[in-house]
């Protein structure tokens, strides 16, 4: 059909536009980070030597600094270094050497990034799985206890600081259930390379951070869903659907819930903000 072709074309144009913007954003982000660090006084070579000799009374000479610089390739101009880094990222998906730990950045980030991602994604899925159905259900209750209980739990989740929840859960696990809570993976997997067994072990440990991350998000989403749902229930198309003879959960899901869920869906992108915020929070569960 003609309209179908038009829709398809519009979709591909939209997709292409998005990819272009994404590429530009990534370029800008990496350039800004590179540039900002460049603007800071000193470079990695100075810092490494300082760390090596600090407290030993050894005087660091300029030649030594230059030597390390040349060794690491830091003597070349900024744009050359950035260009080379960018080229390797784009062609080989290689983020270059990580100076401080003397491995590659890929190895350094590697599974840590994966774990973080899985945790944030897990918390998000967890919060949707609870918030959306419970929000719908609470909104359709006339009044009373259900609303009260859900609101209480929600406000607890919103009001309690995440670290407090984390500490309580850790204590419960350590002292009541006698579980190993010292890491996201069991002792035997520490420092091991990534493997499926290690990943499964991680999932077994992940529920504490999931709960901590997920509780407040869930509470927020739930209250949003409940409010939106109450709003939608009063709309005329709901009455019209009921007047056609549709009722119960099929009606709720087809009409008000689908309308109510849209503002939540449109902000999925924001749900990944813990990815940028949480990594900077203190390491309570690592």
């Amino acid at each position: 059909m003609a309209s179908n072709a038009a829709t398809n074309e519009a979709f591909w144009r939209f997709l292409l536009g998005r990819l272009l913007i994404a590429a530009l954003t990534l370029l800008a982000v990496s350039f800004m980070i590179y540039g900002l660090i460049e603007l800071m006084p000193g470079d990695y070579a100075e810092r490494e030597l300082f760390r090596k000799y600090s407290g030993t009374g050894v005087t660091i000479t300029q030649t030594e600094i230059d030597q390390v610089r040349a060794q690491l390739g830091l003597d070349r101009p900024f744009l050359v270094r950035y260009g080379e880094w960018l080229w390797h990222v784009m062609t080989r998906f290689d983020f270059g050497p990580a100076f401080r730990v003397e491995t590659s950045v890929n190895a350094l980030i590697g599974d840590k990034f994966l774990y973080t991602f899985v945790l944030v994604l897990g918390a998000m899925v967890f919060s949707y799985l609870i918030a959306i159905p419970v929000g719908i259900w609470v909104a359709t209750r006339k009044s009373g206890w259900a609303d009260g209980v859900v609101t209480l739990i929600s406000y607890l989740g919103l009001a309690l600081p995440n670290f407090a929840i984390a500490l309580v859960l850790l204590m419960l696990n350590a002292f009541v259930f006698n579980l190993d809570v010292t890491g996201l993976v069991s002792q035997e997997f520490r420092g091991q390379p990534f493997s499926l067994a290690k990943f499964l072990d991680f999932l077994g440990h992940a529920y504490i951070p999931l709960l901590v991350l997920g509780w407040s998000t869930t509470a927020f989403q739930l209250q949003t869903m409940r409010g939106l749902m109450k709003d939608e229930m009063g709309k005329l198309y709901v009455t019209a659907a009921q007047a056609r003879g549709l009722s119960g959960w099929p009606m709720l899901i087809k009409y008000p819930a689908r309308h109510a869920v849209m503002p939540i869906v449109s902000t999925i992108g924001f749900d990944f903000s813990p990815l940028t915020n949480c990594p900077l929070s203190p390491r309570f569960w690592c």
Binding site: Q242, A243, G245
Partner: peptide, 10 residues
């Protein structure tokens, strides 16, 4: 539900 729409419509 049978009356709504089937017998009386709006």
């Amino acid at each position: 539900d049978q009356i709504r729409g089937g017998e009386i419509a709006m």
